[in-house]
């Protein structure tokens, strides 16, 4: 079992995001008018990040194909909100590469995360919620599992074993064996990394959306996580589906027909994004 203090201390030992990433995020979150040349100079200090930002910026997800050749162009054409989401997504994907060797298959876990993100982007249109923020939050909702795997490998193996033996939801096994779950660990780490508030909330409440007052990105990702599991895309640690809360659906003004008409697009978006991060 991990006590709250142990968890907080352990999170403190997790390597922070690189200083250049933090600097970029601070700049983008500052609310002060941005000098695009300055921003470009910060981003190009991280070659991996630069390459990934340009690759993502030139993908159909952002409506451009081969048009963007520089970070400055990306900033001007896509806007700062998109760049913020790109920087965050790229940084986390680089921290937990798809070919990381662990008990949980990271390729399949990313596949599930991408499917959740794609679902969040598509379903957010029905609810008037920012689709890009929904996508990014969906992409990162399960980073707690990656953090458990990489930084708490031995303890997490026990939780995975319990899940396998009892055929329960993984977060139930985590709570039973570790006294906490990936939502809390992921949220604590996201706080340490100073990710945006809506991402922290989504990570923390994506299994318990009624604990947060204001319907928004958290609720979309909660529904999308279930849709992605329903579609059987990737693997997030168990092969079960949590129940969808009808009150949350009603609050979001979402219904099963909305989900039904979105399935094709969700799968197609997922396939496309996976080719970008593979």
């Amino acid at each position: 079992m991990l006590s709250k203090d142990e968890l907080v201390q352990a999170v403190g030992d997790i390597p922070p995001l690189s200083s250049s990433i933090v600097s970029i995020m601070n700049m983008l979150n500052s609310g002060i008018e941005i000098d695009f040349l300055d921003l470009e100079n910060k981003i190009i200090q991280e070659p991996g990040l630069t390459g990934r930002v340009l690759k993502l910026a030139n993908s159909p997800f952002y409506g451009m194909t081969g048009e963007i050749n520089s970070i400055k162009e990306a900033c001007l054409l896509l806007g700062l909100n998109s760049i913020r989401n790109l920087v965050i997504s790229s940084a986390i994907i680089e921290r937990f590469p798809i070919d990381t060797k662990t008990n949980l298959d990271f390729n399949k876990l990313w596949h599930h995360s991408v499917a959740t993100a794609a679902s969040a982007k598509v379903l957010s249109r029905y609810c008037n919620i920012n689709p890009e923020q929904s996508f990014t939050a969906g992409l990162l909702h399960d980073i707690g599992k990656m953090i458990f795997e990489v930084y708490f490998t031995d303890q997490y193996k026990k939780a995975l074993q319990y899940q396998n033996e009892n055929d329960c939801l993984l977060f139930e096994a985590e709570r039973k064996i570790l006294g906490t779950d990936h939502s809390e660990l992921g949220a604590l780490t996201a706080e340490q990394w100073r990710l945006p508030e809506n991402i922290i909330h989504t990570i923390r409440y994506h299994h318990d959306p009624r604990k947060t007052d204001i319907p928004g990105v958290e609720h979309i990702v909660y529904v999308s996580n279930i849709v992605a599991r329903g579609l059987g895309i990737g693997f997030s640690g168990d092969n079960l589906i949590p129940a969808l809360d009808p009150i949350v659906m009603e609050t979001m003004q979402l219904n099963i027909d909305n989900i039904k008409e979105s399935l094709g697009e969700i799968e197609a978006l997922t396939d496309g994004f996976m080719t970008l991060i593979s």
Binding site: I241, I259, K260, L263
Partner: peptide, 27 residues
């Protein structure tokens, strides 16, 4: 079989049966 197992813990919930039916039809 996969979809039956996935929904095995929530089959008593009407909304989940509706979702299951939609996903089964899609697949």
């Amino acid at each position: 079989d996969e979809i039956d197992h996935r929904f095995s813990k929530v089959i008593d919930k009407p909304l989940m049966l509706e979702l299951k039916s939609v996903l089964l039809e899609y697949r």
